[in-house]
Amino acid sequence: MSEQTKHNISLYVENKPGVTIRISLVFARRGYNIESFVGSRSQDPRYSRINIEATGDSKTLQLMLEQLNRLVDVIHAREYSDEDVIQKELALIKVHCNSETRTEILQIADAFKCRSEDISDTTMTFQVTGNTSKIEAVRKMLDKFGILEVVRTGKVLIARGEEETSW
């Protein structure tokens, strides 16, 4: 088995039923695991943008990109490395707290510019945005207090400068 790496794939597709099945079948057939999948309507309501993060080997990735581009409903599909694009993710983190730990948790949250969304006697919930490594760092820092839940959106990305994303 060749090296398994994470890949960011950005697609511009027709906004129609069944499109996501056609796309995910391309991944499943070659044994690629989808780590995250974000899709929503684009500026032009006839089309959608989809960002997929998936793990697999690079040779298969090239084949899959061609197979994705072959789909009639896919206008464009391409891979991005983290450097080419601005990529962001949002996470909601619910952490256990008590009167002794609350201050320290708030300090950590403040350092990472997390937004406090909910607070109870025993829990605090934050919204954190940024790249994947930032979210990982927050999670790690809060881990010792007892994280109850993490919900993440998965990556969204946009090309830098005048370049159009996924073209």
Binding site: G18, I21, R22, L25, L71, V72, D73
Partner: peptide
């Protein structure tokens, strides 16, 4: 039929 045939068609319409 669409669901069953996705992998074996060039394209399909409902």
């Amino acid at each position: 039929v669409s669901g069953m045939s996705y992998p074996i068609v060039k394209h399909s319409f409902l």
